[in-house]
């Protein structure tokens, strides 16, 4: 094995190792992972600059899938191309997969335990609260004019009263966005496709996709 191959291999292992640590230490879903990833990748390893990082976060949040996994994939690609993607994603997925798997095995043993059952019922209440907060945050960044209010209420209404598959709503959302902007353009309105920030000189980056 020559030197460059060895250093490549070492980099792959480093990527895998770094993302392995992030998964198990971040409870609370995708967006909870971002500060951890930022610390490891920007501050500790210096693989990326902070400004690049906020760009990647906003793309990772817009692409389908969990933002944590997407971000890992993106960073892996930046550092080491497609093998980097594989290493980063394996690193971020494997530990949590094993933990969830163990939890699931443990659950089949203890599911008749009254305490466990009570705890899980309690957690349901907590999850409802978390989802409500997520909905509120999302609404704050997504709803800011008549079109967006109508679309979100319409989507909620369809989901509540019809058995529509969410797939169609997603496709519909894409189309209505493009069509609405075209119509507004034709009618000569000023177009805002994102909420205009009230604090222009706020240094903290805002991620419109921040909903968890």
């Amino acid at each position: 094995m020559n030197a460059s191959k060895a250093s490549k291999f070492k980099l792959w292992l480093q990527i895998f190792g770094t993302f392995c640590q992030i998964g198990p230490s971040t409870f609370g879903g995708g967006y909870a992972m971002i500060p951890g990833i930022e610390r490891e990748v920007v501050t500790k390893r210096k693989w990326l600059q902070a400004s690049e990082m906020s760009d990647l976060v906003s793309i990772a949040g817009s692409a389908p899938g969990g933002v944590g996994v997407n971000l890992a994939a993106f960073i892996g690609y930046r550092i080491a191309g497609v093998p980097g993607v594989m290493m980063a994603v394996a690193g971020i997925t494997l530990p949590t997969f094993l933990i969830v798997f163990a939890l699931s095995l443990g659950y089949t043993f203890f599911k008749d335990n009254a305490k466990i059952e009570a705890a899980l019922k309690g957690i349901q209440g907590g999850i409802i609260a978390l989802i409500m907060i997520a909905a509120y945050r999302m609404a704050k960044s997504a709803i800011f004019d008549k079109t967006t209010i109508t679309v979100s209420i319409g989507a909620l209404f369809l989901l509540l009263v019809t058995p529509i598959h969410p797939l169609y709503l997603i496709i519909f959302g894409f189309l209505i966005g493009i069509i609405a902007v075209q119509i507004k353009k034709a009618l000569g309105y000023t177009i805002h496709t994102e909420q205009v920030s009230k604090h222009q000189d706020d240094p903290t980056p805002i991620y419109p996709e921040y909903y968890i």
Partner: peptide
């Protein structure tokens, strides 16, 4: 891309609100 997300974000809002109500 910006204009499609303009329509997509309210849909995602509806989905999350539905998840809260349904749950």
């Amino acid at each position: 891309v910006k204009s499609s997300f303009y329509g997509l974000r309210p849909i995602v809002t509806g989905l999350i609100a539905y998840a809260a109500i349904h749950f």
